[in-house]
Design a protein around this nucleic acid. Structure first.
Length: 260
DNA sequence: ATGGTCGCGCAGCGA
């Protein structure tokens, strides 16, 4: 079972690349983030034609997540749904696919350390764990995939000193992610690349991609029985390549393979 | 050169 995640940074701007990537890599599940579109603007017909079901949680202009799957998704859930105040931002969709509860998550960026947005980020991560405690009944396997907007280790950052006080690397964000992880997840990519030095996001500015000045902030987390069956994981760096006219996303897809 | 790049949507914000 191949599960992938990709922040497309605008699904309408990335429609051709999305369809091409589905055809070339044939994932069983593809989690998408930053659709920047409402559900009616999602290219559902072409995705269905490519052989996929699509659960879409859209939002006008910002955020937006989707879960694409070859098998029919069951037990669909949208949003944190934790009984606290409703999160008005479209950042989470989950469903059971082939017996695995898969989530597509777009964690808040947080803008700058100390801002309201940063507090929202930390609280959102805490609430995601609360959601899992309420809605993910163990021992059913769970995969949490998406743009986490956190680089867990310094080795996941090309220039860790420069990014140390950024919202992607700051201690409070890393601590929040670690608390979430301890609910029962392990990092599938890190399992197969413990040394780090591989990235999933590069800024459009300052020639970040040609200089490989990136961070690994997109992740596939899995619970224990599934994690043990994760046989490979990789980042499709080629998808980030291309001239301006080729319109790459600023994120590359992250893929994890499971022996099921 | 006190900027630089995207997407969305049509000014300026979020990333």
């Amino acid at each position: 079972m191949r599960i992938a995640t990709w922040n497309v940074n605008g699904v309408r701007a990335r429609e051709e690349r999305l369809l091409r990537w589905l055809g070339a890599h044939g994932p069983d599940v593809l989690c998408l983030q930053e659709l920047k579109a409402v559900e009616d603007q999602f290219p559902r017909d072409r995705v269905v034609e490519a052989g996929y079901h699509a659960v879409v949680a859209g939002q006008k202009g910002f955020n937006g997540v989707a879960l694409l799957s070859r098998s029919e998704p069951r037990d669909v859930r949208v949003g944190l749904g934790d009984g606290e105040e409703e999160d008005e931002q479209a950042r989470l969709v989950g469903a059971e696919v082939d017996g695995v509860l898969v989530y597509s998550a777009y964690f808040p960026n947080g803008q700058t350390v100390g801002s309201d947005a940063y507090r929202y980020k930390l609280d959102w991560i805490r609430r995601l764990r609360a959601h899992l405690e309420a809605r993910a009944d163990a021992p059913k396997p769970v995969v949490l995939a998406g743009d986490f907007n956190v680089a867990p280790r310094d080795s996941d950052v090309a220039n860790p000193e420069r990014w140390a006080e950024s919202v992607l690397c700051h201690g409070a964000a890393r601590d929040a992610l670690e608390t979430l992880r301890q609910w029962g997840f392990s990092d599938c990519f890190a399992k197969h690349h413990p040394e780090g030095g591989v990235y999933s996001w590069w800024d459009y500015q300052r020639l970040a991609f040609p200089k490989n000045d990136g961070l690994r902030i997109d992740h596939v987390f899995a619970t224990a029985p599934l994690f043990d069956r994760c046989t490979a994981a990789w980042i499709d760096r080629d998808e980030r390549k291309g001239k301006k006219t080729d319109k790459p996303s600023d994120h590359a897809p992250v893929v994890a393979e499971f022996d099921l």
